[in-house]
C-alpha cells in the first residue's frame, strides 16, 4: 500500500511572528522556516507504517515555493521514498490545496493519506477534511492512534471530553494530532541518502484545477496587548484582591 503524506513549509514553531506595519500580513523575511509540526508527525506515522510492513511506499507532497524542496528533503530524510513539489509562490487557500492534492491522488492512487491536522501559520484545520470530501473518502481527523488491518483503519481520535474510535474503509484521509507519535530526528546518513531520492517538480497549472482565491485578506493586525505583570505578596492578598478588586470570587 502506498501512503501519501502532504507536508507544508511554515514559520518555525519557536519563532515569535511579527505583524507587518502596513497590516498586509506577517513578516516572514529572514525568519526560520521548518516543516509544520503536525506534518512531521504525519511523516513519522507513514514511515512507521512502512517499517511495520503495512505500507510499501511513502510519497511526500508539498505545495509551495522552491524552498519547499527542503521540507520534502526533511520528509525523505525521515524515511519517505520520494517527493512531489507543486511549485508556486502564491499562498494558496485550503480549498485550492485540497483540489491540487485530490488531483495528485488521482494519479498516485495511494491506499491512505496521512497528514497534519492543521498548519501552524493559517491555523485553518481544513485541508484534510476538504480533501476527503473532494475524493468522497471517509475521514478520521485528530488521530492519536492508527491501526490498519486489511482494507480498514481503526483510528482513535482526540475529541472534546475524551477519545472516539472510528473504523474507516480505505482509502481514507487521516489527520494527525499531537499525540499520535514523537517524530524522529533524521540521522546524518539518512540526510545524505535523502539527497539522492527523487523529487518531481510540477506546477499548479499541470493539474487543471481552479485555485483562484475565494477570500481576500483586508488586514492583519496584532492582537490587543494584555496589561499584566502585577504581583501579589501572599495567598491572603491574592484572595482579597480577587474578591474585592477583581470581583471574580
Amino acid at each position: 500500500m502506498k501512503v501519501l503524506v502532504p507536508v507544508k513549509r511554515v514559520v518555525d514553531y519557536n519563532v515569535k511572528v511579527r505583524v507587518k506595519s502596513d497590516q498586509t500580513g506577517v513578516d516572514l523575511a529572514n525568519v526560520k522556516m521548518s516543516m509544520n509540526p503536525f506534518c512531521e508527525i504525519a511523516v513519522e506515522e507513514a514511515v512507521r507504517l512502512k517499517e511495520k510492513g503495512v505500507a510499501t511506499e511513502v510519497v511526500a507532497v508539498s505545495i509551495g515555493p522552491v524552498q519547499a524542496q527542503e521540507t520534502i528533503r526533511t520528509a525523505l530524510a525521515m524515511g519517505a521514498d520520494r517527493g512531489i513539489l507543486i511549485q508556486t509562490d502564491e499562498d494558496l487557500e485550503p480549498l485550492a490545496v485540497a483540489k491540487l492534492l485530490a488531483a495528485v491522488i488521482g494519479e498516485e492512487a495511494p491506499g491512505i493519506v496521512v497528514m497534519g491536522k492543521q498548519a501552524i501559520d493559517g491555523d485553518n484545520n481544513a485541508v484534510g477534511q476538504m480533501l476527503a470530501a473532494l475524493l468522497d473518502w471517509p475521514q478520521a481527523t485528530f488521530a492519536s492512534k492508527i491501526e490498519i488491518t486489511g482494507d480498514k483503519a481503526e483510528v482513535t481520535r482526540e475529541v472534546d471530553g475524551g477519545l472516539q474510535t472510528l473504523s474507516v474503509d480505505l482509502p481514507a484521509v487521516v489527520t494527525a494530532d499531537l499525540r499520535l507519535n514523537e517524530p524522529r530526528y533524521a540521522s546524518l546518513p539518512n540526510i545524505m541518502k535523502a539527497k539522492k531520492k527523487p523529487i518531481d517538480v510540477k506546477a499548479p497549472g499541470d493539474y487543471g484545477v481552479d485555485t483562484a482565491p475565494r477570500l481576500k485578506v483586508l488586514k492583519v493586525v496584532e492582537p490587543p496587548k494584555r496589561q499584566g505583570g502585577a504581583k501579589v505578596e501572599s495567598a491572603a492578598e491574592l484572595v482579597s484582591k480577587l474578591k474585592n478588586e477583581a470581583g471574580v470570587l
Partner: peptide, 13 residues
C-alpha cells in the same frame, strides 16, 4: 492566525 499572534480580517467572495 499564527496561534493568535496575529488577527486577520478576511472578506469572502
Amino acid at each position: 492566525i499564527y496561534a493568535g499572534n496575529a488577527l486577520e480580517t478576511v472578506q469572502s467572495s
